[in-house]
């Protein structure tokens, strides 16, 4: 049985109406209904952070948000980070510091790091590691990711 609804939200600054199933998560709606596949699924139960998005400015796991809940909300995904002027310093730092290998956790790390720097523009290494502990990476050993975030904070 499918039970569809129309949801109105602002996605990456664009007002958007989309058709979703009642049982869709925000993650599923973003990926399969809207086509914004930048947000990734790693575990679908809130334990890897790959699906991190900002909802009304707050870091959330989009797999743990029902699509119905974003009615009227403002959602930012990795696709919404770069501005018309280009990559934000955080994205640039990830590139220059080689902070990604396979890149699948990268969208989640970028969104979470953006939320971190919005809340705490000058985090310590520990604060960065704590904030990002909800985002798993299996390639990098985190070293270069943490360095990139700290570098972006300096920028």
């Amino acid at each position: 049985m499918t039970d569809r609804m129309i949801v109105s939200a602002t996605i990456n600054g664009e007002p958007l109406e989309f058709l979703a199933d009642q049982r869709d998560s925000l993650l599923e709606a973003l990926r399969e209904r809207i086509g914004l596949t930048g947000t990734k699924e790693g575990c679908n139960d809130g334990n890897c952070g790959a699906c991190s998005v900002l909802m009304d400015g707050r870091l959330v796991n989009s797999c743990l948000v029902m699509a119905a809940e974003v009615e009227g909300a403002d959602v930012t995904t990795v696709e919404g980070l770069a501005t018309e002027d280009g990559l934000i310093p955080l994205q640039q730092a990830f590139l220059e510091e080689a902070a990604l290998q396979c890149g699948i956790c990268t969208p989640g790390f970028l969104v979470a790091s953006k939320a971190l720097l919005d809340a705490n523009p000058n985090p310590t290494e520990y604060e960065a590691r704590y904030w990002l502990a909800g985002n798993l990476c299996r390639c990098t050993g985190y070293d270069k990711i943490i360095r990139a975030v700290l570098k972006a904070a300096e920028a």
Binding site: G46, G49, S52, M55, R58, L59, V60, N61, L64, V65, A112, A115, L116, Y130, W131, L132, A133, G134, N135
Partner: peptide
């Protein structure tokens, strides 16, 4: 509780 993303909810 959880990580930062979990704490958002």
């Amino acid at each position: 509780i959880g990580g930062t993303g979990i704490q958002g909810r």
